[in-house]
Computed example of a mutant assay.
Amino acid sequence: MQEVNQMTKGSAIAYQELLDELQKLDIKYEMVDHPAAKTTAEADAYIAGKIGVRTKSMFLKDKKKNFYLVIMDDAKRMDFKEFQELTGTKRISMAHDSDIEDQLGLEAGIVSPFGIMNNAAHNIQIYFDQDMLAENIPLTFHPNINTHTIFLSAADLMKFIKAQGFDYQIIDL
């Protein structure tokens, strides 16, 4: 139980650090508070009726321990073979929980692009599915904690990513 409390405390700190960074970058957002959501379906239920692309962020790795953050509409199925063909990567799989914690400072189930704040090594390649961005409506994510959902524009999310020293690619998954 103490480990769970420690992770929750860590998530609360990561959440506040994110809010401070968004303010510093003058990024506008809307926040919805809700009970802890363990799945995207649960999180989506808490924000039902609000306009925004429901996203999923998948943290992947290859055999050489290169890391990839893939962000797409949560209604879309990830085709690992297609991702490998588009990016030239090989032997892609979901990263382990320990990789998520080590690289993003987040718990499994709370992965989002905001975790890159905690990646000093800058060793994560970020990919967005173009279909999600074509909708031109706010994107939704857990803001480093699963008791809130943040809504922000794609342009502001890209601004955040660039401010953290990362690049991204837009691909057609």
Rank of each mutant, 00 (worst) to 15 (best):
H142G: 04
K61I: 01
A120Q: 15
A41P: 01
K24H: 15
P143V: 12
S153F: 01
D26W: 05
F114M: 03
V111P: 00
L139S: 10
Q164T: 08
Q130L: 11
L22G: 09
I71F: 08
M31F: 06
Y29P: 12
G165V: 03
G165R: 02
E17Q: 15
I27Y: 15
L139G: 06
T89V: 06
F128A: 04
V70I: 06
A41Q: 08
N118H: 14
A154Y: 07
A163G: 13
Y68R: 09
F80G: 05
D62S: 07
M1I: 13
E85R: 07
D167I: 03
M117Q: 10
V32E: 10
T147M: 03
T55P: 10
M72V: 11
M72K: 12
A41W: 01
K38W: 03
P138Q: 06
G49F: 00
I13S: 10
Y168L: 07
L104C: 06
R91Y: 12
A37R: 00
D167M: 03
G115Q: 01
K28L: 12
E82M: 08
D33R: 05
L18Q: 09
K162L: 14
N5C: 14
G88W: 03
I161C: 11
Q23G: 14
I116T: 01
A108S: 14
E30Y: 06
Y68K: 11
P113K: 02
L133F: 10
G165E: 06
S11H: 10
A45G: 02
